[in-house]
Design a protein around this nucleic acid. Structure first.
Lengths: 102, 102
DNA sequence: CTAGCATATGCGGCATTGCCGTATATAAAT
DNA sequence: ATTTATATACGGCAATGCCGCATATGCTAG
């Protein structure tokens, strides 16, 4: 076999798997281990929701400045932000629903 | 009536409501407006899950250092982190479920 | 055509956080 | 008493969060 035809997703999965194995060997087997995407396309997520930067920011609680910086590549969203963004990308309604009660 | 018997949660709700009204008057009526808790008791959340700082961090993708800093009051989790933490506090299973597919 | 409004871009700037590393408590277990 | 797991306490620097503002871009009405 070869490595041809593999995309970054495959690698992400492999990395996650390897980390799980490492954790297992270290005795850390309490189960679930979060996979934090190392990069997020904020603009794409926002676009998929047809919202302005301001609207998107207000909807999910980000500051406009941060959304701007992220989209302009001036700053990279941090871990927690990346997770939240990924969740928004995946299940916006769920995220909104849970956030409503906060 | 009096203000007796009201806890911070009541006020949080009122603030959120007032902000919504303000946004409405400003013509920002695309709906949902996130309410980002200004403070979060990380230790309490983690304790409610019976996890070590390390386990908690790994489960949700935070860095151990950050969880430490948060619990020791050395740093305040940022917006996105506060939202995520609040969501974890409210619906840990949902958060985990959505995160599994990332 | 162009004035006006909504959005987005670019960027200076500083306080604050993220995150790494490590040395030191604490407490429970062997 | 020694080991092991967990938490505390900081030093420290790179990087982000977030504010404010000037400028560009696009669209729509006059």
């Amino acid at each position: 076999m070869t490595a041809e035809g593999m995309d970054s997703e495959d690698f992400e999965g492999m990395i996650a798997g390897l980390r799980d194995v490492a954790n297992w060997k270290k005795g850390k087997r309490d189960g679930f281990v979060a996979h934090v995407p190392s990069t997020v396309d904020v603009r794409a997520i926002r676009a998929a929701h047809n919202q302005t930067q301001e609207g998107f920011a207000r909807t999910y609680g980000f500051s406009i400045a941060s959304v701007r910086d992220w989209e302009q590549g001036r700053r990279q969203p941090e871990r927690a932000a990346r997770i939240l963004l990924a969740m928004i990308a995946k299940e916006p309604q769920t995220v909104k629903r849970v956030m409503e009660g906060l």
